[in-house]
């Protein structure tokens, strides 16, 4: 089995993080700078170069027991250091579905 690192070329064009789903419950998690996982996007380690991204992904991928399917995804850095999801998919993963679920009274 080739590792995902050899499979795909990694090139990032802006600030990015590594995200995955936690193994035991599937929750969306972000790789932290302390080599752990957090459910808060604001805790994620932010990388800005492709080399850093590759290293962060490799380190995250090594934790196969903790989380499933890590990949690199874009973030937006707002003034004051706030981190926002960088695309619609990550927005939905962070904030939930865009549908109002109707639960009748």
């Amino acid at each position: 089995m080739t590792s995902p690192l050899e499979q795909k070329k990694i090139r990032i064009t802006g600030p990015s993080m590594v995200t995955a789903n936690r193994t035991w419950d599937g929750a969306v998690v972000y790789r932290t700078a302390k080599q752990g996982w957090s459910t808060e996007l604001s805790d994620s380690a932010i990388v800005t170069t492709s080399d850093e991204a590759r290293a962060l992904l490799a380190e995250a991928t090594a934790d196969d027991v903790g989380a499933v399917g890590p990949y690199i995804a874009p973030v937006e850095l707002k003034d004051g250091g706030k981190v926002k999801p960088g695309n619609l998919r990550e927005h939905i993963r962070a904030k939930g579905v865009t549908i109002d679920l109707q639960v009748p009274a």
Partner: peptide
């Protein structure tokens, strides 16, 4: 996960965006 994936799929478990 690589080994488990096919086993979970045999029993209807996918991984989606937010959860299994």
């Amino acid at each position: 996960e690589d080994e488990f994936k096919i086993l979970r799929l045999q029993n209807g478990v996918y991984l989606q965006l937010h959860a299994y």
